[in-house]
């Protein structure tokens, strides 16, 4: 465990908590893509099946449980409790265009052709693109609430910190996982445009709105 990995995990946790709190406090999930949140719930479910097969550390197990529980709570708030505030008309990204190719790719390119390994690979590939429905929704409405941009910032920062963590681990531990690294690079690149807007607009106190 190095500092980049730890801050990456905490950044990921911060993002998840920010989103949950935003929905809970405002009693509304306006501007949030339920589809992205469904995909993240699917990502955590398929990745953390090893909770049943192996124990790594108390930290590892508790973080996994927290991530899974929070992602399901978020989906519940969006699709059940605050369904009336869900902006489904703008959440029109076709998730099958992500899930089907990612499913196929995880069968073709994986470390080991076994059910758990394929599901883990699927979750890695899916996570890298799971934010697309949310970014699509923002580009469609042309704006995002500031709190939503904080959520996206921490979510993007998490994978960027993981990239530094992987460089660190490659040099100091000889650890290298090509699938995770390539997916992580793709995932981080998807946030670059948003990072630019976040720094140039949100951090200067302006609302994130895109030119028409």
């Amino acid at each position: 465990m190095n500092i980049f990995r730890l801050t990456g995990d905490l950044s990921h946790l911060a993002a998840i908590i920010i989103l949950l709190l935003k929905i809970w406090k405002t009693r509304s999930c306006a501007g949030i893509s339920g589809k992205s949140q469904l995909l993240f719930a699917l990502v955590f479910t398929t990745r953390y099946l090893d909770l049943f097969t192996s124990f790594i550390s108390l930290y590892n197990t508790s973080m996994k449980l927290i991530y899974v529980a929070c992602s399901y709570a978020t989906v519940y708030l969006i699709y059940m409790k605050f369904k009336a505030t869900y902006d489904g008309n703008h959440d029109t990204f076709r998730v099958e265009f992500l899930v089907v190719p990612v499913g196929g790719l995880s069968f073709l390119v994986n470390h080991d052709f076994s059910p758990l390994e394929i599901l883990w690979t699927f979750s890695i590939y899916l996570e890298s693109v799971a934010i697309l429905p949310q970014l699509f929704m923002i580009s469609k409405t042309g704006e995002a609430e500031t709190i939503t941009t904080h959520y996206l910032f921490f979510l993007g920062l998490y994978r960027a910190l993981y990239l530094i963590n992987w460089i660190w681990r490659y040099y100091f531990e000889g650890f290298f996982d090509l699938i995770a690294v390539v997916a992580g690079v793709v995932q981080t690149i998807l946030y670059c445009d948003f990072f630019y807007l976040y720094v140039t607009k949100v951090l200067k106190g302006k609302k994130l709105s895109l030119p028409a």
């Binding site: 990921h12 790594i56 470390h111 000889g174 650890f175 996982d177 090509l178 995770a180």
Partner: peptide
């Protein structure tokens, strides 16, 4: 050495 498939990350 290069180690593959280590699932200690989240």
């Amino acid at each position: 050495k290069i180690i593959l498939k280590q699932k200690d990350e989240l």
